[in-house]
Design a protein around this nucleic acid. Structure first.
Lengths: 210, 210
DNA sequence: ATATCTTTGTAACACAAGTTACTGTAGTCC
DNA sequence: GGACTACAGTAACTTGTGTTACAAAGATAT
């Protein structure tokens, strides 16, 4: 574990802190599609992403979902982070986008390290900043873009996260993430294919315009 | 200034820190409608809200605006906060919603106090948490509500912020904040009036259903 | 190979929201 | 008072998106 940890975080944390994380943290692995955190979960530890990718979702009162953003290596979930501090329930759902390994850090350590390590403080602030920026981006997307643009952006983001220009999703899955209907997704994907921006196959969409 | 500061913050900061803020901070006053921060501004100090209210907006590439949230006494602008740390440009615009007084704190102090005062750290984390939650609420609003509900929520929020059930805005101003058109706002306001939820007058809307 | 299920394509329609255009009305300035 | 401006009301139309319904194509199981 220490190896992987160093690989991902040695640029920002000093050895002493890395060793502390190694001692207190618990390694967890999730298969693609597994749920990591659900709405209303009480969180007693904070995740540090070592490898893989996580999809973060929001749900409304009718059970409709909406994709907020993806997390990659080196990220932490700032929502979780602030839930930990407030010991409030999770406002979001986190699902493994691909096979994912992460380290769970007990909340008690958070407070301790925040006081003790400047690098940790900076990391936490940096994470909050990144997440706020990401949320702004999400707001821009749903407020200012039409469905064509949102779908195209979704495909590009997903291709980037998975480092594969072929996105393996059904139209229904995309509809869930974007909070729209399957028919709308099919219709627009077909239009994007005619425009030459993507290539459609069963369960697969090749993104030509990255 | 120290008086006002104590009035608003003595519950969360110790006297020593309050005195520090008093020494380093600079008092600023803004009239309702004045712009406090604009897109692209570089920020060298961080605002603490003493009195009044602030409206925080987002803008897209075409210059279209969208209201993100309101700030009240005891709040700070977490976006500003993270801009300060990253010395990046402001992603948002802040406008005084009513006459507002705030204290500007130089960024150098931020780092210092974060290391030194636990209450300050908690305040900063708390602020980030509140802001993230507020952003989630904004996302819910634009993603899951229709225009009728959004306008009603807007009026209720605005009435609450101004502690006045009479909202003094033109239909055009509401349209800007919600990123829609004046005609749509007029049409829906009329409908809400017929439903008995509001009462319309020139430049004024009385919110009956708070 | 037949039956079944999942995924995709498409047509026809419904509806919310945005657009254009015009009118009326309340204030302001001369 | 008359001219002007800002604000509000409303009608008629367009457009984007969501809905319902059904058919076809590919995958999977028996």
């Amino acid at each position: 574990m220490l190896e992987k940890l160093k690989e991902a975080y040695h640029f920002i944390f000093e050895d002493e802190l890395l060793n502390e994380i190694d001692r207190s943290g618990q390694l967890k692995e999730f298969k693609a599609g597994e749920m990591i955190i659900d709405f209303g979960d009480y969180l007693k530890s904070m995740p540090l992403l070592l490898d893989g990718a996580i999809k973060v979702l929001r749900e409304d009162s009718d059970g409709d979902e909406l994709l907020l953003y993806f997390l990659e290596r080196g990220d932490t979930c700032a929502m979780t982070l602030s839930c930990c501090l407030g010991t409030t329930k999770s406002e979001i759902r986190a699902v493994a986008e691909k096979d994912t390994t992460l380290i769970m850090i007990p909340i008690e350590k958070m407070e301790e390290w925040t006081a003790q390590y400047k690098t940790w403080r900076n990391f936490v602030f940096e994470s909050y900043h990144t997440r706020l920026t990401e949320m702004l981006d999400t707001i821009d997307t749903i407020a200012f873009l039409n469905m064509d643009e949102r779908i195209m952006k979704y495909l590009q983001d997903k291709a980037k996260i998975n480092q594969d220009e072929v996105v393996s999703s059904t139209h229904q899955q995309i509809a869930y993430d974007l909070h729209t209907s399957r028919v709308v997704v099919s219709r627009i994907l077909k239009k994007l294919e005619i425009e030459g921006k993507i290539k459609l196959n069963r369960n697969q969409i090749e993104v030509l315009d990255l």
